[in-house]
Nucleic acid binder design. Structure first.
Lengths: 332, 332
DNA sequence: TTGAAAGCGCTAACAC
DNA sequence: GTGTTAGCGCTTTCAA
């Protein structure tokens, strides 16, 4: 900045004014400064400025995801980037891999970079470790799951209603015996999906005790095995509801293997690429990661800009997408 | 840091030494400082430190991708993160959406944050805009495509050899009339894939002039239409080679529509999720984004740490993955 | 082994 | 409309 000032023949503060587009600079000096900065290829140092700036803002936020390469997370990331880059805010992203230690380590890493706020997918059983920061006024917005151990804004999918939608849809098609294949029961979202699904069946008059349930399925292979087992049991269900993508893939494999793809109905929670290219197309309860990301970004920026309304959980609805697999009627 | 020093009853420099794990501090004072920093929940400010540090490093790098939500890019991102987080380096990612103006804008945004280096997927026809920075010693590594207008490290897929592998595989299965369906011809990688494919066919004795070619297909629908047109022509090919995912999806749609999924062979360039769940499974020439990301991170760090060997292009080989669609034999 | 002083690039406060 | 000075949190240099 000193060099630019020297070259333009002005004071350093004038350069600062021009680079920050502050008013009170004559057009002619503005042009001199701009020319000099062009010549020297000068770019304002955002972080150095934040040191002295009264707001102390670094125009940077942290985003903690299960993995930047997970499609659901990546959509959220993209939506946030779109909202934030407009405001000149850059995003640090980190992958947590379901490891609580990484959650804490990455929070610390971002704190060390003085982010203005964070959007966090909670992994640890408890987010008490961010309490000191949060109470020190560092804005934190949680996504996908609500935090435990502190109150803060959260943006989550309506998992229970999503599960209920699946139940009602399959019921409407005529199914009465529908199996639930679910993820690890220590995952809050999985429990919610199951609860919504089972409760809805109960309300529809199905005996909830007789619903076949297989849980703690966390990959394609375990889901496939569970589905095969259920489908080859003595009184098999006429439809399956799977609580997440990998489980859905396992169910698809099992159905294909057993030649039941067009006989047993399937509804999956969470949409995926090529779901419409399968045979039959896979009916899903779609989440809306782009909405989650956009809203999380909006809330975070509002907090950073001083919004002090009480913390709130924002709930994003799911959408039933009909593609064929969920519309297969029971034999009989 | 002043507060920690006061609480620990030491000088500010001693706190700095402890936080940076510098030698020359007695164990007892070290513990006093650590305790005080714990109590005050203090975290060293990485960026403020970089201001005065002789290396001027911010422990931050920029990553410019087509889109953080594109699966290929997301894998690269993840691989880079894995390599860099070990070294305490954080990653800013940005999506360029094939827009040259965004490429330049994001480069500037990252420069303003004083990144130690950048990994860039070039979009613009020419990367001359990073020359001033690059010649000022800012390390830049290009991925996926080689840069134009300057020489720098690059990590790219061996597109030509990948195309040739597809040609040879289909030839070996017995095909002599194989169509090429490709992306926009202004994309370097697409041209390379085509060149490798056509040249290999020529070497195998196939008249290259008679190879059906459809290019400038950039989405599923245009690819589907082109495939339908080719497959319903008077002298249709017995196999298809598609140059990227969306084109592959379009071909799959067309084959399904025409009832040719098990009659006409298909090899796609670039692997995708669920390729093994299709009917038939889709044979592909797989790229290795995780290798590209890991190598790009390694080269970038080497440059940042002072490596001054001449710039080099690193080539990552592809892998043929056999899943069924590419092994369908020609009729007759 | 420890600390005081200067200064990194910038903005705030205030003077001109 | 413009410039000077102090100081943000830190590391460097150098003295104790």
């Amino acid at each position: 900045m000193r060099h630019v000032a020297a070259l333009a023949g002005v004071g350093i503060k004038t350069v600062s004014r021009v680079m920050n587009e502050e008013p009170g600079v004559s057009e002619s000096t503005r042009e001199k400064v701009l020319l000099a900065s062009k010549q020297l290829n000068y770019e304002l140092d955002v972080t150095a400025g934040s040191l002295r700036r009264s707001s102390r803002r670094t125009q940077t936020v942290g985003l903690l995801l299960p993995s930047v390469s997970n499609p659901f997370s990546a959509e959220i990331h993209r939506a946030m980037e779109d909202a934030l880059s407009l405001k000149g805010v850059a995003v640090f992203a980190a992958s947590l891999d379901d490891e609580p230690e990484r959650e804490e380590a990455m929070v610390r890493a971002f704190l060390g970079r003085r982010v203005d706020g964070m959007v966090l997918t909670p992994i640890a059983s408890n987010q008490a470790h961010v309490i000191p920061e949060h109470s020190r006024d560092l804005p934190v917005v949680f996504i996908d799951r609500e935090p435990a151990g502190l109150t803060a804004d959260a943006v989550v999918t309506d998992n229970a209603v999503g599960g209920a939608k699946a139940a009602r849809h399959l019921f409407d098609v005529g199914h009465r015996k529908i199996a639930y294949l679910g993820d690890r029961t220590d995952i809050q979202t999985a429990r919610e999906r199951r609860r919504g699904f089972i409760d809805a069946l109960g309300e529809l008059g199905v005996s909830t005790a007789s619903v076949p349930v297989r849980e703690n399925l966390h990959d394609v292979e375990s889901a496939r095995l569970a589905a095969v087992e259920i489908l080859t049991s003595s009184d098999p269900p006429t439809a399956l509801f799977s609580s997440q993508n990998l489980v859905t893939f396992g169910c698809m494999r099992a159905l294909r293997e057993l030649g039941l793809s067009h006989t047993v109905a399937l509804v999956g929670f969470d949409d995926f690429t090529l779901s419409d290219m399968m045979d039959p197309g896979v009916t899903v309860i779609a989440q809306h990661p782009e909405k989650i990301g956009a809203l999380a970004a909006e809330r975070l920026m509002a907090r950073i800009e001083g919004d002090i309304q009480p913390p709130k959980t924002y709930i994003i609805e799911t959408t039933l997408i009909i593609r064929g697999s969920g519309e297969i009627r029971p034999a009989s």
